[in-house]
Design a binder for these strands. Structure first.
Length: 474
RNA sequence: GCCGGGAUGGCCGAGCGGCUAGGCAAGCGGCUGCAGACCGCUGUACGAGGGUUCAAAUCCCUCUCCCGGCUCCA
């Protein structure tokens, strides 16, 4: 089946064909490490992670690069505020960044280049741009001359003339065109700086990404991702720089995710609705947060609120319950018509899942396919005590492979319940005693055991086949 | 001023010309000592008005209302 993706460049869905069939090269704009990442950042990274996982699922090899911006105005200001060096600041928050993405089960990038470690490459790129006539030097600053790059605006749809009209660009007299952007910023007292042919200074933001992307992925990359706010000016400028240097297409598919809102409004520090991943994780588990972030299509806005979180939690719980239930189902030798019917339903669900994902990563539709599969498993387990071993393993494999694509950590969930030997033994003693009480119809004490276990996060469920237990996922 | 995205049942959220996703919440029923989990069933939709069509939530036009980008931002 063919994968179709919505390319911001051209604003339409296109069949995805990597330049090199054996390896997809993707680049995702990473964080500026001046603060903890917020849930909007998390959405972008989770979406990119799902894209990466699905490409792998489809059999592509993926080389995934995502940078860390560790030098810019925000870094400088924040370091001053905190009274620490920029290096220390970067160290603190890049560590926090990795901790956060690990919790969210986002696979680490193959390469995480840092801007400050690629200054020579950036200087070289800027020199080339000057030599080719795309950039000019003014008082130690270097600017990109957008009038020299004819295709400027092809990604965002902004035309240079229109940008001049825009009242919001502050006029910088050094620039030839108001929309020209800085490639290199001359040093100012109190700021870090590197030596360059134009004097001491530091690189502009846009040159960081395009330079590092090209260094690790080549002149033309397959997929470039980020939040929609990056379309202009960041990605537009990256294209201008990169293509001016090489004369080749910089990125073939541009994918941008929509906003995450809070209470219907865009997050911003001034509104005070800025939620970091760390704050969000006080409200729910990382698994639930991740699942919530893919509960809407990546190109649709998504609102962060308690109800939506609760919704995600319940749906996720249903999926994991079903995996566990199938996992625990005893095996038998012979296969029945019921077994075969279940397998058929699962295979059908798998097809639906793939169709959904092939259509521009439609995760909500893919999730509904998974829920359908969970329902089939539950219906089966309601009436069948056992299942033929090979069919069971096959179904389990299909189902868990799909969960893996979405990054649902079913295995970790199960390990909590099954991994701790002591806990396991202890609870089986309690269940045993409680069984005895139930036989004597001593509901009061039996319920007390159940209630108290529940209060510490252990849920007992009485079934016709005995009492089962699991750890609460809240 | 210039670009762009939306408005789907109480809520979230797919669908984007015919085959009326899915979930959460609610109600009913089953299983249960109760609870939980699970299964089955039920209801309530496509912002407004025109048009195109045998057929429109889906296409076209007009309008209303939301949200965003053009400045650091995922």
């Amino acid at each position: 089946m063919v994968l179709r993706v919505f390319n911001t460049l051209g604003r339409r869905k296109e069949e995805f064909i990597p330049l090199n069939p054996s390896e997809v090269r993707m680049y995702v704009c990473g964080p500026t490490v001046y603060d903890y990442i917020h849930i909007g950042n998390a959405r972008a990274f989770v979406v990119a992670d799902v894209v990466r996982r699905y490409l792998k699922y489809k059999g592509f090899k993926v080389r995934y690069v995502s940078n860390i911006t560790d030098i810019d105005d925000k870094m400088i200001n924040r370091a001053k505020e905190m009274g620490i060096s920029i290096q220390e600041l970067g160290e603190i928050y890049s560590n926090a960044y990795f901790e956060d993405i690990d919790k969210l089960n986002i696979e680490r990038p193959d390469v995480t280049p840092r801007a400050t470690q690629h200054i020579p490459e950036m200087i070289e790129a800027i020199e080339t741009l000057i030599k080719k006539g795309y950039a000019y030097v003014v008082d130690g600053d270097v600017y990109f001359d957008i009038s020299r790059f004819e295709e400027y605006g092809k990604l965002s749809g902004n035309r240079a003339e229109a940008l001049e009209m825009g009242a919001r660009i502050e006029v910088n007299p050094k620039k030839r065109n108001p929309a020209d952007f800085a490639l290199w910023k001359a040093w100012k007292p109190g700021e870090p700086g590197w030596h360059s042919p134009w004097g001491k200074g530091r690189p502009g933001w846009h040159i960081e990404c395009s330079t590092m992307a090209q260094k690790y992925l080549g002149e033309t990359i397959d997929i470039h991702m980020g939040g929609k706010d990056l379309i202009f000016p960041h990605h537009e400028n990256e294209i201008a720089q990169a293509e001016a240097i090489t004369g080749k297409t910089f990125a073939r598919y541009w994918l941008h995710n929509e906003w995450l809102t809070v209470g219907g409004e865009k997050m911003s520090k001034s509104l005070g609705n800025f939620i970091t991943v760390r704050d969000a994780l006080k409200m729910c588990s990382p698994e639930v947060l991740r699942f919530f972030l893919i509960s809407a299509h990546y190109r649709s806005p998504l609102d962060f609120n308690e109800k939506a979180l609760k919704n995600a939690e319940r749906r996720l719980e249903r999926l994991i319950n079903a995996v566990e239930r199938l996992h625990d189902l005893p095996e038998r030798e012979d296969e029945t018509a019921e077994d075969r019917r279940l397998l058929l339903e699962i295979e059908n669900g798998k097809r639906k899942f793939e169709e959904a994902m092939d259509d521009d990563f439609n995760t909500p539709l893919a999730i509904s396919a998974l829920i359908g599969m969970a329902k089939a498993i539950n219906s089966y387990a309601d009436v069948n005590e056992k299942i033929e071993g090979r069919i069971k393993r096959r179904i389990l494999k299909i189902f868990t492979d799909l969960l893996e694509v979405l990054g649902v950590r079913w295995e970790a969930e199960m390990e909590v319940s099954y991994g701790n030997r002591l806990l396991k033994d202890l609870i089986s003693i309690l269940i045993d005693v409680r069984d005895e009480l139930r036989k004597r119809r001593d509901w009061k004490i039996a319920d007390r055991i159940r209630d108290r276990l529940r209060s510490i996060g252990i849920i007992l469920e009485d079934t016709p086949k005995g009492t089962k237990w699991r750890i609460s996922r809240k």
